[in-house]
């Protein structure tokens, strides 16, 4: 239903002749307003990602190590502002990126991650997320075929505890990788790919097992690790996606995020990763929380933009930092199904 709404919105925009996707019908969605500064920052960021030579000939973005991940994030950054694959200013580049991801799946029997890459399942999850969102915007049947196989890889790789880890096999599990797969499955399910409810329920069980009972934050694994802001943001977001927003554990996680001191807000570990999940958690948590949260993080992100070229630095390179910054700033756009409540 959400998908239909979004598609309808996009079609309406196009029908009205408003094909400038950078100028969506509303910049204030419900509770938070996209300030002119934020809109400019996003536009500049997208220009950086689309500048000559930024995208490789095979349609990918990023360095040699995590190209699938960076390409997926970049593709989503374009879609976030309402750009549609195959149309308009960035349409060609987006189509090329989609082909890059589809080809990765073809090469590896549905697995989209880079073999032997420690972050292979992250890449896979992000690619599923990006392709699911793309499938909502461009009814390219090749996307659906790649998605179906990729989702199957995730389903088969869920371990006994309900989680996932580095490789596409049902071995061990950690919170971070599990959250990535939950987000991917949720998005794929929204796009119409069948995902068994038992998979989601088991995944939620695993996430819950990672909650620290003392503080309400989330740890790296069920067995240990210190709870921190990034893990808690991820844990909360995934529980919401599993339909557990009203669960006491989720609410405790949200309380943990809200109690996180502002002094540490700017310099938290895994800055982009943490705030990507945190801003979505707050958006899903409700108007009051998002209204209090969004101005803080958007000001912070805009302040970190490289003024000369519009990019953001990130732990894994400029494409990673820029696309995630755009995805954080652009939550109010709500063009991506993942940004729907």
């Amino acid at each position: 239903m959400k998908l239909i709404t979004i598609t309808f919105t996009i079609i309406s925009v196009l029908a009205l002749g408003n094909i400038n996707a950078q100028d969506p019908p509303s910049q204030s969605v419900g509770v938070a307003r996209l300030t002119p500064e934020v809109r400019t920052a996003i536009t500049k960021g997208l220009e950086y990602l689309s500048k000559e030579g930024s995208q490789r000939a095979d349609g990918s973005w990023g360095g040699d190590q995590n190209r699938v991940a960076e390409t997926s994030l970049t593709l989503m950054a374009f879609m976030l502002q309402g750009h549609v694959p195959g149309r308009g200013q960035y349409g060609r580049k987006m189509e090329n990126a989609i082909e890059f991801l589809i080809n990765k799946g073809k090469e590896r029997r549905g697995y989209l991650g880079t073999p032997r890459n420690h972050a292979g399942m992250y890449e896979h999850g992000l690619a599923v997320l990006a392709l699911s969102e793309a499938w909502g915007q461009s009814k390219n049947p090749r996307i659906k075929s790649a998605l179906t196989r990729a989702v199957d890889v995730i389903l088969r790789a869920q371990n006994k505890e309900g989680g996932w880890r580095y490789s596409p096999e049902p071995r061990d599990a950690d919170l971070s990788m599990t959250v990535m797969q939950i987000v991917a499955l949720n998005s794929a399910s929204e796009a119409g790919i069948a995902v068994p409810q038992t998979t989601i329920d088991k995944a939620a069980e695993y996430v819950l097992s990672c909650q620290d009972q003392g503080s309400g934050g989330f740890k790296y694994t069920a067995g240990g690790g210190e709870p921190n802001f990034a893990r808690t943001a991820a844990g909360v977001m995934s529980l919401i996606m599993c339909g557990q927003r009203d669960l006491k554990a989720t609410q405790r996680g949200i309380a943990f995020l809200k109690a996180f001191p502002e002094s540490k807000f700017k310099s938290t570990n895994h800055f982009h990763y943490a705030h990507y999940y945190a801003v979505q958690s707050m958006y899903q948590s409700g108007d009051a929380d998002f209204r209090a949260w969004y101005p803080k993080i958007s000001t912070e992100i805009v302040g970190k933009q490289n003024k000369n070229d519009g990019s953001w630095s990130g732990s894994y390179g400029q494409a990673y930092g820029t696309s995630l910054s755009i995805l954080i700033l652009g939550v109010p756009y709500r063009y991506l199904p993942i940004y729907q409540r």
């Binding site: 009972q213 503080s215 309400g216 309380a255």
Partner: peptide, 12 residues
């Protein structure tokens, strides 16, 4: 009476 779930975080 488990205090963690009843009180605001972090509880340390």
């Amino acid at each position: 009476l488990m205090m963690g779930p009843l009180l605001p975080p972090p509880g340390t």
